[in-house]
Amino acid sequence: MLIFALARVLPGDPIRAAFGPDVPEEVVKRYREMLNLDKPLYLQYFYWLRDVFQFRLGRSLITVRDVSADIAEFFPATLELLLASAVFRIIVAFPLGVLSGRKPGAIMDNIIRVLAYIGICIPTFGWAIILQLIFAYWLGWLPAIGRISEEFTGHVPRITGLMTIDSLVSGNVPAFIDALKHLLIPTVALSIGGAVQEARILRASIVENIGRDYVLNMKSHGIPEKIIYFKYVLRPSLTAVVPVMGLDIASAIGNAFLVESICNWPGMSRYGMIAMLRKDLNAIVGVVLITGIAYIAVNTITDIVLYVIDPRVRLRGREE
């Protein structure tokens, strides 16, 4: 509702912004009526809400179709990026954290520390440009922009909207590899800063847990160090890093627009940014709404993961 109101009070005339200064007054007037922009604000909200419950988010002024259709087209690309980002974070953050937590102060720990600072210091868009420069321009290993090469365009059926999964499901292996290559740069750019930070948090949590009495207790019973570390220290340590990771991934939804713009990734964040600049009212509200829902979804998943690994979360309610 707040976003709805904010979008409406933004300065500038959305119709004029969409059609330019030269459209005749009557066209503008007709569009206004069509979008209910001539009605008072509370009525506008009421109409909008009525439509939302019918899964219609109103017409976009730029693409000239219902915003829900736009989002259905662009959201899967962003979702793919986010999922890839989550996978990347997990396969980078956990091993790095575990490695550096094992022997604090050892060479490995220091190398990872330096890498972590580099990872954090460079912003998302910086990474996107650097990676493009190195892997696409100099080395030519990876494509710099887009989701899939032209030769495969139209050859992959749209099932889930996730290019990698669609191509895999339809058995088109070359297309899958191609899609994966396209996915790599934006994913790494989007997640590397967060991933190294999460590795550091995991490391700190491990170091803290290693000094606890229960570790000494297990050691005093002659339980092998590897079992203590990987089974009994790691799990409680994860409870510190999982919520952070969840939050990071959720906020990546918002941050994705930089990467999507630089890598020409046809995702929802980029769509939302264009909508914002062009004052496409319904599109803005729609994107914010979906972002909010995605946020809630990510947080729910985080809570479920925590629920599984930490019995204190699971049983607290029942105990009281």
Partner: peptide
């Protein structure tokens, strides 16, 4: 161990 609270793994 001295402290039964911390001598057992919480999870």
């Amino acid at each position: 161990f001295q402290d039964p609270l911390s001598a057992l793994n919480p999870v």
